[in-house]
Computed example of a mutant assay.
Amino acid sequence: MGTTVADYLRGLGPGLRPELPETTAGTLRLDAREDGRTEHWLLTIADQHVEVSRSAEDADLVVRADRSVFDEMATGHVHVSAALLRNDLTVQGDIRLLNLLRRIFPGPPGARHPRTVAREVMEGRTGVGGWGAPR
Rank of each mutant, 00 (worst) to 15 (best):
M73E: 09
A74V: 07
A74Y: 09
A74K: 07
A74W: 08
A74T: 07
T75F: 00
T75G: 05
T75N: 05
T75I: 03
T75E: 01
T75A: 08
T75W: 01
T75V: 06
G76F: 07
G76S: 14
G76M: 09
G76W: 07
G76P: 01
G76C: 10
H77Y: 10
H77M: 09
H77V: 10
H77P: 04
H77R: 11
V78C: 08
V78P: 00
V78R: 07
V78F: 06
V78K: 09
H79V: 14
H79D: 12
H79A: 14
H79P: 02
H79N: 13
H79I: 15
V80G: 00
V80P: 00
S81M: 15
S81F: 13
S81P: 11
A82N: 07
A82Q: 06
A82C: 05
A82G: 12
A82I: 10
A82E: 05
A83P: 08
A83C: 08
A83L: 04
A83H: 04
A83R: 03
L84C: 09
L84M: 13
L85I: 13
L85H: 13
L85A: 11
N87H: 08
N87Q: 13
N87C: 05
N87P: 11
D88F: 15
D88G: 10
D88T: 12
D88S: 10
D88Q: 14
D88E: 15
D88L: 14
L89N: 02
L89Q: 01
L89K: 01
L89H: 04
L89E: 03
T90H: 10
T90E: 12
T90C: 12
T90N: 13
T90Y: 10
T90V: 08
V91I: 05
V91M: 04
V91N: 02
V91R: 01
Q92N: 14
Q92A: 15
Q92M: 12
G93S: 03
G93D: 02
G93R: 03
G93I: 04
G93V: 04
G93E: 00
G93A: 03
D94G: 11
D94Q: 10
D94H: 07
D94R: 05
I95E: 03
I95V: 13
I95D: 04
R96A: 15
R96C: 04
R96N: 08
R96M: 06
L97T: 01
L97F: 01
L97Y: 02
L97V: 00
L98Q: 03
L98G: 02
L98N: 04
L98A: 03
N99T: 15
N99E: 15
N99C: 14
N99S: 15
N99I: 11
N99D: 15
L100Y: 03
L100C: 06
L100F: 05
L100P: 06
L100R: 02
L100Q: 05
L100G: 06
L100V: 06
L101T: 02
L101D: 02
L101M: 05
L101S: 00
R102W: 03
R102A: 07
R102M: 08
R102L: 06
R102H: 08
R103K: 13
R103A: 09
R103T: 12
R103H: 11
R103I: 08
R103Y: 07
